[in-house]
């Protein structure tokens, strides 16, 4: 079975109550599908950032087999 690895960081991780999910890949799967499934159809927080395979993404891109998707709040390093 091919999977999508899903990661949550910082405040999002705490709100989800877990750091990772694994979701079965299906053709046509988008970032919003992953979020809806993980959150129980909660609306995506407006300021939330998304990375696919460790690159920032905008919008709602379609995913490929084996992708890693991460959801996190605005960054506060430095």
């Amino acid at each position: 079975m091919s999977i999508i690895k899903v990661k949550f960081f910082a405040r999002i991780r705490e709100e989800m109550g877990r750091a990772e999910d694994q979701v079965e890949f299906k053709p046509g799967l988008k970032v919003s599908d992953i979020w809806n499934r993980a959150s129980g159809d909660d609306e995506m927080p407006e300021a939330m950032l998304v990375a696919v395979n460790m690159e920032h993404v905008k919008g709602d891109p379609e995913l490929k087999e084996g992708d890693e998707v991460a959801f996190f709040p605005p960054v506060t390093g430095g």
Partner: peptide
């Protein structure tokens, strides 16, 4: 660029507990 885009998140300890820093 680091402050705007690098994936780090600060959580501070203050007098009444902990809080996430929402933005730089």
């Amino acid at each position: 660029d680091l402050k705007h885009r690098a994936p780090f998140w600060k959580k501070e300890t203050v007098s009444d507990g902990e809080r996430w820093v929402d933005r730089n």
